[in-house]
Amino acid sequence: MRSDQAEKRFLPKISVIVPIYNGEADLPGLLHCLRAQTYSSDLVSYCLVDNGSHDRTSEILKSASQDAQNFVVLSESQIQSSYAARNLGIRSTTGEILVFTDADCRPEPNWLENLIQPFEDLTVGLVAGEIKALLGNTILEQHADRQETLSQKHTLAHPFCAYGQTANLAVRDQVFEQVGLFRPYLTTGGDADFCWRALSQTPWQIRFAERAIVRHRHRSTLAALRSQWRRYGRSNRYLHELHGVDLMRDFSLQDYGYRLTRWLFKELPIAAIHGLQQKATLADLFSTPIGLICAHARTTGQRHAHLPDQARQIEWLHEPKNS
């Protein structure tokens, strides 16, 4: 016989949507984590959307769908954009709550249970779970871990408006009915754009589920790190054009010179002493130069980005009533 507490558990039907592009290396780990979820398998479906992959992604996904009835495989090959892939998933699922993550993420077993609970409050339309780092060995990975680069604490405290990253985000289905889906031709910044539309155009609120943890691998090479921060810069430019977000101030040569001089003659000696006392690591020693590399890449991305007209389009589940 069930206890009253078990009877009152909040267990809505949910759909997890994952856009995938060339995910051959990441999919086995992701699929393992999804299969390990403690949320009732009868109440969750996993919608895996192949976004035009050229590796063994489709083969791996086909095998996964054959092994489990609640794994559904779709293909978005017309538009190369994770947001277009997510939109296909949204249109194809029936969950009361739609949950988003990415192929290179590793959700903890109780991820879904913790992510869904804030929706017991009927004013909550969006919930952001936490994003933490997978263990990394390189200086760059350790630096990003110390900075909590991917943490939702940063996005939820955004000075313009709070938002959650789609690596770990849950949304009520009614929100998409009201404000539309993701902009399908946008290549970055679509999570902030969607959340800001939802929070500015409706009374829905956003909550942080800190114990709903997804782990993500930080970039381990300078090329990958620069690419990541250039994308952040492009996102800032796009959101400036869409929502009026302030642009970041460009770093001048004097700014870089001052920061490097301060690092060389003040921060580095202090960090070196701490290192000798085993109170600092190489990531601490080189924190400022790595931070300046990130800042330069982000500035470059912002400076050279321009929002294509096509990327302004919003897809709708249904035509808006005022159209």
Rank of each mutant, 00 (worst) to 15 (best):
N236R: 15
W229Y: 15
R226N: 04
L225I: 09
G233V: 03
Q201A: 09
T188F: 06
R237Y: 13
R226E: 10
R237D: 05
R211T: 14
T188G: 09
A198K: 05
T188W: 02
L222G: 10
L181G: 00
E210F: 04
V214Q: 04
Q178P: 02
A170P: 03
R234H: 09
R183G: 07
R231Q: 14
L181M: 10
R219H: 10
E241D: 15
G189K: 05
P203L: 11
H216F: 05
I206Q: 02
H243M: 08
G189C: 06
R197E: 09
G189N: 06
H240E: 11
R237H: 13
L222N: 12
N168C: 10
L186Q: 06
H243S: 09
D191M: 05
P184F: 07
S227L: 14
Y238D: 03
L225N: 08
G189R: 05
H240Q: 10
A198N: 01
A212F: 03
S200H: 12
G190N: 04
A167L: 06
H240L: 08
G189D: 04
Y232Q: 12
H218D: 12
Y232D: 13
S220V: 04
A167I: 01
Y185W: 14
I213L: 09
C195L: 07
G233Y: 09
R231N: 14
D173A: 13
F208L: 06
T188M: 12
A223L: 12
T188I: 13
R207G: 00
A224D: 14
F194C: 00
Q228N: 13
S200C: 09
L169D: 01
T202N: 03
F176M: 03
G189W: 02
R183K: 15
V214K: 00
R226L: 00
R215F: 01
L239D: 02
C195H: 06
L199E: 08
W196I: 06
A198P: 05
I206W: 01
T221W: 08
Y238G: 02
G190V: 05
V214T: 07
G180I: 08
L225R: 03
G233M: 04
E210L: 06
D193F: 00
E210H: 11
D173E: 11
R231V: 11
W204Y: 15
F208H: 14
Q178S: 11
R197K: 13
G233P: 06
R226W: 02
L239M: 06
E177R: 14
R211C: 09
H243Y: 11
V171E: 08
H243R: 09
L239A: 05
L222V: 15
H216A: 02
S220M: 06
R211P: 01
L181D: 01
R215M: 09
W229Q: 05
A223P: 12
R217T: 10
G189E: 03
N168M: 01
S220D: 13
I206E: 00
D173K: 13
R217W: 03
T188C: 15
G180P: 07
A209C: 08
R217G: 02
H218Q: 13
L181P: 07
A192Y: 00
F194M: 10
N168I: 00
Y238V: 00
L169Q: 03
A224C: 04
R219I: 00
Q174W: 10
